[in-house]
Write a protein that binds this DNA or RNA. Structure first.
Length: 576
RNA sequence: GUCCCCGUAGCUUAACGGAUAAAGCAACGGUCUUCUAAACCGUAGAGUGCUGGUUCGAUUCCAGCCGGGGACGCCA
């Protein structure tokens, strides 16, 4: 199904081409949803843009374009006669009959009007990427939720998506973990809470390394032994990875986040030395101050910022692993787009990776999808080591607890057995929506009340709209059957039908600029319009075609809400 | 010092270069004998950090400044 803006834009293009002096083929003539209902439903600023280039009066040019539009039979089917307003806007108002037909057609479309990508890509998305041996905290939320949402949306649009969790399972911290394991492990605690014990021994070793040079040397020695393949240390490392992954799997299951692969940094270990050798051989990398570096003399911004791919002590690092990962994603997985949902502090790193990839002959676009920082009360970025930041599990627990309290208070009739599950859905939804509904580049200070709000522009508001619809269908006592015809009369019906048709535009917009908040915003508006419809238009008390139409609008709204929320990774309850 | 991101009502946020800057929270006042009041309606509240520039049109693009966050060779 072709989205409405595309249909209108095509008509506009035909009109432009019919002008005595048509604009060039690359002149873009987009049609967008009107900023204000008073201006109709859709608007085009092509006349103003074209008039600017030609230095003519925009309103006069708009008049010429509208004259051509009037002769367009296809447009006449969709829109009333376009009008000219303001400095030269061309405004379209959809015909109720057209909107009714579209609403009816959407009921038969499993994609709810969202067009499939014309050119399907193989997108490899790198997100979440926590470090092993540390519990996930609220700072991990952004990458995890944004990445998961982008993966869901890209998949829905028809792209092949490979979600990869690039676990930090092979770093300097393992020297400390192993040192701690050998010197201060408490087996009883390990049995009781494996991950907590790993964190504890890490912290003990870390503190020791900071104060006692002998302990610091010990940590380094354990790391060196691990990296050289010492069986005992490798065994301890494996056990740590197993413990951590069990914990991570639980939290991802709870979040409903899915990965196709979870290849940690360690996976690429065997490839690092050969890769560096090849890069030296090809003249891409060279020695500098004892380290092996890739220089970027052609890039002014990176001219003095080489990427170090082998440290002076012979060890490899982050950049080396990322380049090896890149090879796998492009050569073995056939990735045609690589997306990295990683915090803004790593911007320089990814510029280097991008530049290095080009020198290696990799042409696949690499996009670093940055996001703002989650700050602590001190307005400083939340870091894993600072300790006082909130564990992700605690946040989710608190979300469910608060949701459960509200359910008990407001919905005492909800069966006891359903309450825990409903609290889970609502609590988790609130947390996810709080994150996904805001612009990804905004920094924000973590606050419980912000993450756990259940009123206003929140997930429960959208879930409540869905629940109200489900309630109507429960009371109607009959399965929904799509009517022969949809007949739109009331303003609230028309408004809802228009908003439903815009789902088709909202979903692709998420991918265009990696902005889940655009979809969240659309779903909020849809819910808002629905609540207005709900107040104005009784469904079950109406009769005949009106009742059929209203039931159809309810059903479609429910489908769009369920689908849209699912793209955000948010579930819907049947009751709340 | 160089570079990157951010700066919008009291608070939290929204707005492909477009029309009178849009919501939520908090405040105040109304709506449950009528499909779930986690809802709806109404009142009040900013002219988008500052100064310039480009444009018919700037919250959006450009320059400088101020404020906040971050990055800048052997952490990841």
């Amino acid at each position: 199904m072709v989205p409405l803006p595309s249909l209108l834009s095509a008509a506009l293009r035909r009109a432009l081409d019919a002008l005595p002096e048509p604009p060039p083929a690359d002149f873009s003539a987009p049609v967008t949803a009107a900023a204000d209902p008073r201006f109709g439903d859709y608007q085009a600023n092509a006349a103003m843009a074209l008039a600017k280039a030609r230095k003519v009066n925009p309103r006069a040019l708009a008049g010429e374009i509208v004259e051509k539009l009037k002769g367009d039979a296809e447009l006449a089917r969709i829109s009333a006669e376009p009008t000219i307003a303001g400095p030269g806007f061309i405004n379209f108002t959809l015909k109720p009959e057209f909107l009714a037909a579209r609403t009816r057609a959407l009921l038969d479309d499993t994609k709810l009007g969202v067009p499939t990508a014309e050119k399907p890509e193989t997108v490899v998305i790198d997100f979440s990427s926590p470090n092993i041996a540390k519990p996930m905290h609220v700072g991990h939320l952004r990458s995890t939720l944004i990445g998961d949402c982008l993966a869901r949306v890209a998949r829905f649009l028809g792209h092949k998506v490979i979600a990869d969790n690039h676990l930090g399972d092979w770093g300097t911290q393992f020297g400390k973990v192993i040192y701690g394991w050998k010197n201060s492990l408490d087996r009883t605690r390990l049995a009781a809470g494996p991950l907590a014990e790993l964190v504890r021994i890490y912290q003990v070793a870390n503190t020791a390394a900071e104060t006692d040079p002998a302990a610091a040397d010990g940590c380094r020695a354990e790391l060196a032994k691990l990296q050289s393949g010492d069986p005992e240390n490798v065994g301890i490392w494996r056990e740590c990875v197993r413990i951590s992954c069990e914990d991570l799997d639980r939290i991802y299951a709870r979040l409903g986040v899915h990965f196709d692969f979870q290849l940690g940094e360690s996976h690429f270990n065997p490839r690092l030395a050969p890769l560096v050798g090849e890069l030296i051989g090809k003249g891409i990398a060279r020695e500098s101050d004892g380290a092996i570096c890739i220089f970027f003399p052609d890039n002014p911004k990176l001219a003095e910022k080489p990427a170090i791919i082998r440290k002076r002590d012979g060890a490899f690092n982050y950049a080396t692993t990322d380049l090896a990962t890149l090879e796998l994603r492009v050569n073995d997985w056939g990735g045609t787009k690589l997306w990295y949902v990683v915090g803004a502090p790593q911007a320089l790193h990814f510029e280097q990776i991008n530049a290095a990839a080009r020198q290696m002959g990799i042409r696949v676009p690499i996009t670093h999808i940055t996001f703002g920082s989650i700050l602590g009360e001190d307005r400083k970025i939340m870091r894993t080591r600072s300790g006082e930041n909130v564990a992700l599990r605690d946040l989710l627990d608190e979300a469910e607890t608060r949701a459960a309290a509200i359910i008990t208070e407001r919905s005492p009739d909800l069966p006891e057995g359903d309450r825990a599950e409903t609290a889970r859905i609502i609590g988790l939804g609130a947390v996810k929506y709080a994150e996904l509904s805001q612009h990804r580049l905004t920094d924000y200070v973590f606050a419980w009340d912000r993450m756990l709000s259940f009123q206003g522009n929140t997930a429960p508001y959208l879930q409540n709209a869905y629940v109200r619809i489900r309630s109507i269908f429960r009371r109607s006592g009959a399965e929904f059957r799509a009517p022969e015809r949809v007949v739109l009369q009331e303003p609230a019906e028309l408004a809802l039908a228009k908003k439903l048709a815009q789902f088709a535009e909202s979903v692709p917009a998420v991918i265009d600029d990696f902005r889940p908040n655009l979809l969240a915003h659309y779903l909020y508006e849809l819910s808002d319009v629905f609540h207005g419809f709900y107040e104005a238009c009784p469904v079950l008390k109406s009769e005949g075609a009106t009742r059929d139409t209203r039931l159809a609008l309810c059903e479609l709204t429910a489908r769009v809400l369920r689908t849209g929320l699912d793209l955000l990774g948010i579930a819907v309850p049947e009751r709340m």
